[in-house]
Each structure stands twice: as C-alpha cells, then as structure tokens.
Amino acid sequence: MKMMIIGSLLGAALAVPALAQDGDVAAGEKDFRKCRACHMIQTPDGEDIVKGGPLGPNLWGVVGRKIAAQEGFRYGDGILQVAEMKPDMVWTEEELAKYVTDPGEWLEEQTGDAGAKSKMTFKLNKGQADMAAYLASVSPDAASD
C-alpha cells in the first residue's frame, strides 16, 4: 500500500514536470524564437532584447505584471475578463507556464466560462517551465523565490 501511494505521488509529479519544477533560462531563451513572430522583448528605454512582431504584447517585465496590463496593447475579451474578475492577479512563472500550454483552457479555468476565447492560438507543448523562467529573467520586477 505504501509503495502504491509513493508510486502515485511520483507519477503525479512526473505528469506535470513543466509546470511544477524549475525551468532552464537558457533553454527558454532558445525556445523563445517560437514566440518572436508575435512578441518582442523591449526594455522601457527602447532596447531590443528580442526583436519581434507586434501581434502580441511586449513581454519585457511580464512576470510580476498585472494580467492584460501592457499599455497600448489591444487584448482579447477573454483575458480582459480575467483582468476584470481578478484585478490584483499578476503573471507568475507558474501561471505563464499554464497559459502557454493552452491559452484557451487557462482562460476557461480562470473565468469559469467555456466560451472564453484567447487571441493567442499558439500552444507550447514542452518546455513551458523553461519559457516561464526565461520570461522571469527579463522581468526585473519579478518576485524572487
């Protein structure tokens, strides 16, 4: 019985490694090339960390930033609904890892609305914790653990 419980706990831990374990910043930086078609990382003084597209919000400082709070960006209704329902919620590495796994599912989980839609159609199938760790590394206001 004891072994079954340990096995179950181990299986559960292995089932969500990308969301529950520390990420690799260097691997996340490498994987960010998948994101730069839509997103840039640009400092407030205009320095391009990663040149990218304007379809998604600038991800400089995203960890620690309130949800849907990038000035000048036109967010979709689903994420705006989350921001309205949870005005004090900020992006954490854990929430970003969940979001990039499946943005629509994350919105549904946050709002309770199965019809909540995301403008972000891309889903990251692996390396979510790495991506979140990289985004934290370009987020000077992120809380350190």
Rank of each mutant, 00 (worst) to 15 (best):
K86R: 12
L14A: 14
A15S: 15
Y134G: 10
Q110W: 01
M4I: 11
C38K: 00
D24K: 09
A69C: 04
R36A: 04
N58T: 13
A68C: 10
G56W: 06
G7W: 01
M89T: 02
A143W: 00
T92G: 11
A143D: 03
A12D: 01
R33K: 15
R74V: 12
M120E: 09
L14F: 04
A143Q: 10
P87H: 09
A136Q: 13
P44H: 07
L124P: 00
S139Q: 12
I79N: 06
Y134M: 13
E108W: 10
N58D: 15
R33M: 11
Y75L: 04
I6S: 01
P103I: 03
W106Q: 15
F122V: 09
E94C: 00
A37D: 12
P103D: 10
M40K: 14
M131Y: 03
E93N: 05
M4H: 06
A27T: 13
K126H: 14
I5Q: 04
G53P: 11
I5D: 07
L135D: 08
P140H: 08
V82K: 10
L59I: 07
G127V: 01
W60R: 08
G53V: 10
F73V: 10
I5G: 01
G115P: 05
I5L: 04
A68N: 08
Q128M: 05
E109I: 00
P44Y: 00
K2Q: 12
S137M: 11
G28E: 05
V63G: 06
A37F: 10
A114L: 12
K126L: 06
A26S: 13
D113C: 03
R65N: 13
A114M: 10
Q42D: 02
A133D: 01
L96A: 14
N125L: 15
P140W: 08
Q128R: 14
G115W: 03
T43W: 05
D145S: 11
A133G: 01
H39S: 09
G52M: 09
A129Q: 09
M131C: 03
A26N: 11
L107C: 10
L107P: 06
K123I: 07
V90H: 05
Q81M: 12
L14G: 03
L135A: 04
G127I: 03
L10T: 13
A133C: 07
E93V: 08
R65K: 12
A20Y: 00
E29L: 00
G23A: 08
N58A: 11
A132R: 09
Q21P: 03
F73P: 00
T121W: 10
V25N: 01
G115K: 15
A20V: 13
